[in-house]
């Protein structure tokens, strides 16, 4: 955990006053809205949050989550049309309608509410995921209920994004197959063949040959990395950046692990010799 924090500290330090938050889950994206803000504020925040995503998310589905708070029906409609028309995202109804959690007291501060929202949602998503054929490693810390006041007020808030799930895939991906997780690190034991895609909100590690397309930090996180035992992709994407290998590529005579990360707004690939 300590090591993780070091690596990711700067990644997603989300200011606590944020009105709109975009998080990725297995079933798609979730736009978390603080409904106590005015519709105008929400609208501006949505635009701000989505502006730097480019069109990388077009066609995916999104859930609008007000964390159990009421949002006036016309306002909701307005938001839906804004998101759909501007960003090409499909709005789906929330599968698990968020009911207000009973243990939230009205007099608790906004911060505590946020904390609760953040920690419970991934758990719900994880539960829904349990039937899938993809294993998930969920750090034990995640399972602790955030009801305890101590948990909610500890300075752990900034490293919350670190406690994301890890998705483990134990097969190769063939052309046309896509594995997409908007949350957490994706580890694949196998190859990603040309024409296959791996997309993750966090890092991507391929313990095999990566010959297809990989998109790490798919929600705009440019500190995500892509690593593979043999990195010969058709295209690499980290956050909003896209790169492809040079057509007359320099290839190592012997395949070796390589790592791709962002340096000065460029994706650089280099041999991996440990951190």
């Amino acid at each position: 955990m300590v090591e993780n924090r070091d690596v990711n500290d700067s990644i997603q330090a989300i200011p606590t006053h944020q009105i709109v938050e975009l998080k990725g889950f297995r079933d798609g994206l979730r736009l978390m809205i603080d409904a106590s803000a005015s519709i105008e504020e929400i609208r501006v925040s949505v635009k701000e949050r989505m502006a730097n995503l480019g069109d990388s998310l077009a066609g995916t589905s999104i859930v609008i989550d007000t964390g159990g708070q009421e949002l006036a029906a016309p306002d909701l409609e307005h938001l839906k049309s804004l998101i759909f028309e501007t960003y090409g995202l499909e709005i789906v109804t929330d599968p698990e309608s968020p009911a207000p959690t009973p243990d939230i007291q009205e007099d608790k501060q906004q911060k505590a509410k946020k904390e609760d929202l953040k920690s419970t949602k991934p758990n719900a998503a994880a539960a829904a995921d349990s039937q899938s054929d993809v294993d998930r490693i969920i750090p034990t810390k995640r399972k602790t209920k955030p009801t305890a006041k101590a948990e909610a007020t500890t300075p752990l808030l900034t490293d919350l994004p670190n406690r994301e799930a890890t998705h483990v895939i134990r097969y190769s991906l063939r052309s046309g197959q896509v594995e997409r997780f908007f949350e957490g690190t994706l580890i694949l034991f196998g190859d990603v063949n040309p024409g296959a895609e791996v997309i993750a909100g966090g890092d991507i590690v391929v313990l095999g040959r990566l010959r297809g397309l990989a998109h790490a930090g798919a929600l705009g996180n440019t500190s995500a990395i892509i690593m593979a035992m043999n990195l010969t992709p058709t295209q690499l994407r980290i956050g909003h950046l896209i790169t492809r290998p040079p057509s007359t590529g320099i290839r190592w005579s012997k395949p070796q692990p390589e790592i791709a990360r962002v340096e000065n707004d460029n994706i650089v690939v280099e041999p991996f010799n440990g951190f």
């Binding site: 991906l173 063939r174 052309s175 046309g176 197959q177 063949n193 040309p194 024409g195």
Partner: peptide, 16 residues
């Protein structure tokens, strides 16, 4: 051919 192999890969995925 690269393109035929790509399509074969897709078909294999579908059959599996």
């Amino acid at each position: 051919d690269v393109s035929a192999v790509r399509d074969a890969d897709r078909i294999i995925g579908l059959l599996q």
